[in-house]
Simulated scan of single mutants.
Amino acid sequence: MDGTVSARGRRTALLLVAVGLVVWSAMHLSALGASWSQAWRMIAHLGWRWPLLLGAVWLLGLVVHTFVLTASLPGLTHRRALTLNLSGSAVSNVLPLGGVAGTALNLGMVRGWGHTGLEFARFVVVSKAWDLVAKLVMPLVAVAVLLLADADPGSLWLVCATASAVVGALVVAALLGRSLLLLRLVTLAERLLRRRGWTAATAALLDGTDRLVRRRWAELSWGMAGYWLLQGALLWLCLEAIHVHLPFPVLLAGLVVERLLTLAAITPGGAGLVEAGTIAVFIALGTDPTAALAGVLLYRAFVFVAEIPVGGLATALWLLAR
């Protein structure tokens, strides 16, 4: 009981710290010259064609991402994969640390479609791990592109991006059955943090994933690459809609940071933290503060806000179908 109360207290404290950081970031943006009222006007004055185009690109990205999900769970159709993605995101985007609740909902759906709990566990491990690998490896790609464009991201960014890519490579190796080094690192973390069961849990999650990944690595890879490409296209179009024209290296850096920060889902869907970090990177790379604010808010309106009602509708249709 005491352990449960303590865990809840830590989660609450973490959430309060995140909210405080978001509030501070919003105030700091104004100090940097960003105008919230002007940013909202830039978005509100878009013609009706822009939302339709942006919505189509957003939806196409979700459709392409279903190839990652169907490769992770043999027998899953693309329509059902899209339903899983939208419904899980809808729950995760309205609850603090809501990923667990979204996963529980998806488990109920998958079992209703005839898949076993073990198949679902492997599905979650492979699909989430492949997404994680992309988010860990892409920072090094972004730093390399910035360096080629004669933009110095700083030695700290280079070190962090390299370390992130190394972790991503370890995850890929573990998924392919070479998990010894990763398990040793987990064991080390287990001892340093005085936890128990992490190594055994990690080994159990990786059991059997190597056969699936070896068979489906091509679908997983091109599905994730296509999804990232369309996410980048959506961000570019959101900025173009408000007449902001950024060089490709700057655009890529903003996309990579936005995707990476979604891992810090302390607030629902990382709301606030993701926007603040992405806007900060754009401003640091020379983008007008108000334009960066408007472009990122418009982009997040699709990849975060729109998933809530659309995912709720998908969940309602699934319930009716039952």
Rank of each mutant, 00 (worst) to 15 (best):
L76K: 03
E240G: 15
R300V: 05
N106W: 08
P309L: 07
A292P: 03
W40Y: 11
N93R: 01
V166N: 10
L192C: 10
V63Y: 03
L147V: 03
R178I: 08
A225I: 06
G108N: 05
A276Y: 00
L170Q: 13
V110E: 10
L313Y: 07
V137E: 14
L54Y: 11
P139M: 09
L285H: 02
R300H: 08
R122Q: 10
G168H: 10
W236N: 12
L183Y: 09
T199F: 01
V125G: 04
Q38V: 14
E190M: 06
V68R: 03
D288I: 11
H115P: 12
G168Y: 11
L212F: 06
R216Q: 13
L95I: 09
T199Q: 08
V256S: 04
L176K: 09
W50D: 09
L156D: 13
G270R: 07
I308N: 13
G47K: 12
W24I: 08
P247H: 05
L105C: 05
G270D: 04
L140E: 10
T202H: 07
L107Y: 14
L82A: 06
T278M: 02
A101H: 04
A291L: 13
A218I: 15
V63E: 06
T262L: 01
A276G: 00
L97I: 10
A90I: 00
A165R: 07
I279N: 00
Q38G: 14
L73I: 01
K128G: 15
A161C: 06
A321S: 14
T315R: 15
G232D: 02
L52Q: 10
W157S: 15
P74Y: 02
G114L: 00
R8Q: 13
L175D: 01
R216I: 11
S87P: 01
R196S: 07
G223H: 04
A189M: 09
A34G: 05
G197H: 01
L170R: 11
L175P: 01
W58R: 09
L16M: 09
P139C: 10
A233E: 09
W48I: 11
A173E: 03
A294S: 05
K128P: 14
